[in-house]
Amino acid sequence: RLTVMSLQESGLKVNQPASFAIRLNGAKGKIDAKVHSPSGAVEECHVSELEPDKYAVRFIPHENGVHTIDVKFNGSHVVGSPFKVRVGEP
Rank of each mutant, 00 (worst) to 15 (best):
R1H: 02
R1I: 15
R1E: 15
L2Q: 01
L2C: 02
L2W: 00
T3N: 15
V4C: 14
S6R: 14
S6N: 15
S6E: 15
S6F: 14
S6Y: 15
L7E: 03
L7D: 09
Q8W: 13
E9M: 03
E9F: 03
E9W: 00
S10R: 04
S10D: 08
G11E: 08
L12F: 04
V14D: 01
V14R: 05
V14G: 01
V14Y: 01
V14L: 12
N15M: 04
N15Q: 03
N15E: 08
Q16M: 05
Q16K: 13
Q16T: 15
Q16P: 00
P17D: 15
P17A: 05
A18L: 14
A18T: 07
A18P: 00
S19H: 04
F20M: 02
I22N: 00
R23E: 09
L24H: 01
L24T: 08
L24E: 00
N25S: 15
N25H: 15
G26K: 04
G26A: 05
G26Q: 01
A27F: 05
A27D: 15
A27H: 05
A27Q: 08
K28G: 03
K28P: 13
G29M: 02
G29I: 01
G29E: 05
G29P: 01
G29C: 01
K30R: 12
K30F: 07
I31F: 01
I31E: 00
I31Q: 00
D32W: 05
D32C: 14
D32M: 11
A33W: 06
A33C: 15
A33I: 14
A33M: 11
K34D: 06
V35R: 10
V35I: 13
V35K: 10
S37H: 03
S39T: 05
S39N: 15
G40N: 10
G40R: 04
G40M: 06
A41I: 12
A41T: 14
V42M: 15
V42T: 13
E43C: 01
E43G: 15
E43T: 05
E43Q: 03
E43W: 02
E44W: 05
E44Y: 14
E44S: 06
E44H: 04
C45K: 04
C45M: 08
C45I: 14
H46K: 12
V47I: 10
E49K: 14
E49L: 12
E51K: 05
P52T: 14
D53M: 06
D53V: 06
D53W: 03
D53L: 03
K54P: 03
K54L: 07
K54C: 05
A56W: 05
A56N: 14
V57Q: 01
V57N: 01
R58T: 06
R58W: 02
R58P: 04
F59S: 01
F59T: 02
F59W: 14
I60L: 07
I60D: 09
I60Y: 05
P61Y: 03
P61S: 01
H62S: 14
E63Q: 11
E63K: 10
E63T: 13
N64V: 13
G65C: 02
G65P: 00
G65H: 03
V66H: 15
H67P: 00
T68S: 10
T68I: 09
T68M: 11
T68K: 07
I69M: 06
I69H: 00
D70V: 08
D70A: 06
V71R: 00
K72G: 03
K72R: 08
K72N: 11
F73C: 05
F73S: 05
F73K: 02
N74L: 07
G75K: 13
G75T: 14
S76H: 10
S76P: 07
H77F: 11
V78E: 04
V78C: 06
V78Y: 04
V78R: 02
V79F: 03
G80Y: 02
G80M: 07
G80T: 03
G80E: 12
S81N: 10
P82D: 01
P82M: 01
P82G: 04
P82E: 02
F83M: 05
F83T: 05
K84N: 10
V85W: 11
R86L: 11
V87H: 01
V87W: 00
G88K: 05
E89Q: 10
E89T: 07
P90G: 07
P90M: 07
P90I: 07
P90S: 06
